[in-house]
Nucleic acid binder design. Structure first.
Length: 545
RNA sequence: GUGCCUGUAGCUCAACUGGAUAGAGCAACAGCCUUCUAAGCUGUAGGUUAUUGGUUCGAUUCCAAUCAGGCACACCA
């Protein structure tokens, strides 16, 4: 819809011999400022040497746009040019919602761009805790959004099932197992204290009795149990990864060694105290870093660097990593290493979300992993349901500290923002059920399109709703450009609100069948947008509440 | 001490990346159900955007300093 304006404005700049500045068309915050606004007159003021309002005047003179498209053009404030679309143009444009239906909102801004999104990536040493939820949801929704923008998305989970942490897991399970066997052995100092360790030990004990001493067996069992647990939770949340990338494969196919050799040839490593160091300081960082310990084992940095190089070699144009703020320190080293190896790290987009605190009965829930009484993600889903988990985790920008109010999420009441959205959808569904009883079509969109006299739509509340529905594709694009899914929740809340307002102002079912059909079409369009939005957000669009 | 994030209404947060009168939800107060779902709608009240400077036509947004909170500063990931 904006294309016409864009083209006309740049044409005007040309004929007026103004410099070709970038033309920004924005939606004003206040409705009385029209549907679209541009600030070019103010931008031009300095270089042209005239007052913004005068410039705006000259530009407007040059515009040739039919009254049937733009009903009014105004100069306002310091020099904004405000455009208002003609109602008939809005109504006409809105037909595309019905035409595209389930696909309405999709766009091709990411066409032919391969993006890899890597997230969750928890090692199989225990269940996901509730704090993990933010990352799980953020990544899942972002991946959906990218897909709706036409990106070729690969969802990836990177894990490590070797090394210290896994040994620790094995030792912890072994200690619990020994307890079950009646032996008293010292529980490892940095062991995992969670109840699940006892569960795993019990399972092994039940199955095998007292005979096991092979630590590898405990590690294998522990890994299996933890991974099954993690995957089970992800399944509950409908999170599906295309690739599970095992860090170990980087050793097997020699990629780790390759990276070391390359660093060596670039004179970026040295030996000290029996360890191998990366000269991070020559790459502009604070300190040099160990990449191979004196035990011969690499630190996380080396495989991480190799892994990112691998992603480049696999041909991704954009690589997204999602981390919690507690992992922030690991990023600069890894990226510096990857860059030193000749890769364009601007293609790596690291999203860091701040920590989450949970509120129950007005008090903070403790998340201590060590004490073993961690509040797991599974328990959170149990407490508030999948829909609320999705909505609450995604409704805030990633870089604010999130307060998750369990009491609120649990409430089946008007206070809960998830229900507001679902209620609007259910309400529409209810209207459509009534209409169906009277033999009105509500499923076959193209039939509706042909049978509807759209010119019957002209009330203020109807036009307002349509305008908002027409913003949907742009909202989705906005979310992907900024990698910020929370904009979508703000938008959808507004759609629901605008629908409720329409609902209260006008009856849909009526004796005037033509009007009724037109309003049913409007309802269906609103339903399409809310449903599509809900699907992206992982929230179920309910037919009944 | 250093790095990153944050500070906006009583509470939880937006503000389209520099635009016009800073907006929502919850909580508070006052209204609206013999008609399609009141999990809704309408209205009232609530602000020196932590503080102080700077940049410019214009700052919640950018820069600097200060104050406050969170996270991280390993041969753990």
């Amino acid at each position: 819809m904006k294309e016409i304006l864009h083209q006309q404005l740049s044409q005007a700049l040309q004929t007026l011999h103004y410099p070709a500045v970038e033309i920004l068309l924005e939606k004003p915050k206040v409705a009385t400022h029209g549907d679209v606004t541009t600030n070019i007159a103010m931008v031009l003021a300095k270089s042209v040497g005239k007052k913004p309002r005068e410039i705006a005047e000259t530009i407007i003179q040059e515009l040739k746009i039919a009254q049937t498209i733009i009903s009014s053009i105004e100069i306002a404030g310091p020099g904004f040019i405000n455009f208002t679309f003609a109602d008939s143009f809005i109504v006409e444009s809105s037909k595309k919602v019905l035409i595209e239906g389930k696909n309405y909102g999709k766009n091709s801004s990411g066409k032919n761009i391969k993006v890899n999104i890597e997230w969750v990536s928890a090692n199989p040493t225990g269940p996901l805790h509730s704090g993990h939820g933010r990352q799980v949801i953020l990544g899942a929704v972002l991946a959906n959004i990218l897909e709706w923008n036409g990106y070729d998305v690969t969802r990836e989970y990177y894990f490590n099932n070797a090394g210290n942490q896994m040994r620790n897991l094995a030792e912890s399970i072994y200690a619990r197992y020994c307890e079950l066997c009646g032996e008293n052995i010292q529980f490892p100092g940095d062991g995992y204290h969670g109840e699940y360790i006892k569960t795993i030990a019990q399972e092994i004990f039940n199955e095998k009795g007292k005979r096991i001493t092979d630590k590898n067996y405990f590690q294998k069992k522990g890994e299996e149990w933890c991974f099954a647990n993690i995957k089970n939770i992800l399944t509950k949340l409908n999170v599906v990864h295309d690739v599970f990338y095992n860090e170990d494969s980087l050793y097997k196919n020699g990629k780790i060694q390759e990276v070391i050799e390359k660093f060596r040839s670039l004179d970026l490593i040295y030996e000290k105290d029996g360890a191998t160091w990366l000269k991070a300081t020559t790459l502009g960082l604070e300190n040099d870093r160990v990449i191979v310990k004196n035990t011969g084992e690499p630190t996380y940095r080396l495989p991480d660097i190799a892994y990112h190089c691998e992603k480049f070699l696999r041909g991704f144009d954009v690589m997204i990593d999602i981390f919690g703020a507690d992992h922030i320190a690991t990023i600069p080293d890894v990226l510096a290493g990857v860059k030193a190896l000749g890769y364009d790290t601007t293609k790596v987009k690291v999203i860091i979300h701040q920590m989450v605190s949970f509120l129950r009965d007005g008090k903070q829930v403790k998340l201590s992993k060590r004490s073993g009484d961690a509040y797991t993600l599974d328990e959170l889903i149990e407490d508030v349901g999948k829909d609320a988990v999705y909505y609450f985790f995604v409704m805030r920008s990633a870089n604010t500290h999130l307060e998750f109010n369990i009491d609120l999420a649990q409430q089946q009441s008007e206070q809960n923002p998830v229900y507001y959205l679902q209620y609007a959808h259910a309400r529409i569904a209810s209207i459509l059920r009534f209409a169906e009883e009277q033999n009105f079509e509500s499923k076959n969109f193209s039939a509706i399109l042909h049978a509807t006299n759209f010119s019957r739509i002209h009330e203020k509340e109807e036009i307002e709703l349509l305008k908002l529905l027409l913003d949907f594709p742009e909202e989705i694009q906005k979310c992907s450009i900024s990698y910020e899914p929370h904009h979508l929740t703000v938008y959808l809340r507004e759609v629901a609100e605008t629908f409720h307002k329409f609902y209260h102002a006008h009856r849909v079912l009526s004796e005037d069948k033509e009007l009724m059909k037109a309003r049913l079409a409007l309802c269906i369009m609103a339903k399409i947008v809310i449903a599509n939005g809900c699907i992206i957000l992982g929230v179920e669009p309910k037919e009944k509440m």
